[in-house]
């Protein structure tokens, strides 16, 4: 447990020293979302209709950009090997990396999401569901993306390949995330969607550190 906190503290300190990297992801999120009204036209009803989907899709794409740097610097300067040689199990390191990734990328995306929802005039009833689904969904994305980052570590054309691997696995989060917001706007119970998303999060919390650790072992072999 101590190792978990130590690695997370290290990651967050590194992220804070290069605050620009997190900021640029959020900036991409906002910019990509701002593109849609130019593409589909500024008609308010339609924007309100597509708001949940746009927020979720652009958040996913923004997150994709952040995964490539998750392990690469540590892999290149050898500190990943040092971490692996240390007493902490690789699964713990994987979990700490994912948690730190969420704190430095997922959380900022979550904070920026209502801003985009305002630009899209999301109905008031949708905000609660938006924040809840983001709170449940972004950690899942961080966890699954960590697996992708570990699998593609040291490959040629890492970033595009990573997206190709991770996006299919993240589709359920997107489906239930937007469905919950739509249900909240329509006045239908959102409980089942949120419970499924909670289930995804718990499942990912248990399974992805194992997969990430296995992938890291292959990378370091």
């Amino acid at each position: 447990m101590n190792a978990l906190v130590l690695i997370m503290r290290r990651e967050i300190r590194l992220a804070l020293r290069q605050i620009g990297e997190s900021a640029i992801i959020v900036l991409f999120f906002v910019l990509a979302a701002v593109l849609f009204p130019f593409g589909v036209g500024p008609e308010p009803n339609m924007l309100a209709r597509i708001a949940p989907g746009v927020v979720w899709v652009t958040a996913l794409l923004a997150a994709m950009l952040s995964f490539e740097r998750l392990f690469t610097p540590d892999f290149e300067d050898g500190s990943l090997e040092q971490l692996a040689l240390g007493p902490a199990p690789l699964e713990m390191i994987a979990l700490a990396k994912a948690a730190a990734h969420w704190l430095t990328t997922g959380l900022p995306l979550m904070i920026a999401a209502p801003l985009i929802a305002v630009l899209y005039r999301l109905p008031d009833a949708g905000y609660g569901a938006l924040m809840t689904t983001m709170a449940l969904g972004t950690p899942t994305i961080s966890l699954i993306g960590t697996v992708g980052a570990a699998l593609t570590l040291g490959s040629r054309r890492g970033g595009v390949l990573l997206s190709l691997l991770v996006i299919p696995l993240i589709v359920p989060v997107l489906i239930f995330g937007t469905a919950a917001i739509d249900a909240a706007i329509g006045g239908i119970p959102v409980r089942q969607h949120l419970m499924l998303m909670g289930g995804f999060l718990l499942g990912a919390l248990v399974l992805t550190p194992l997969a990430t650790a296995a992938a890291l072992r292959q990378a370091l072999e």
Partner: peptide, 18 residues
């Protein structure tokens, strides 16, 4: 794609297996 993405084919097949 993952299988063919590494200079070391053994690494590619293990990553793809996961």
């Amino acid at each position: 794609a993952l299988q063919n993405a590494f200079d070391d084919p053994a690494r590619g097949e293990r990553s793809a297996a996961i």
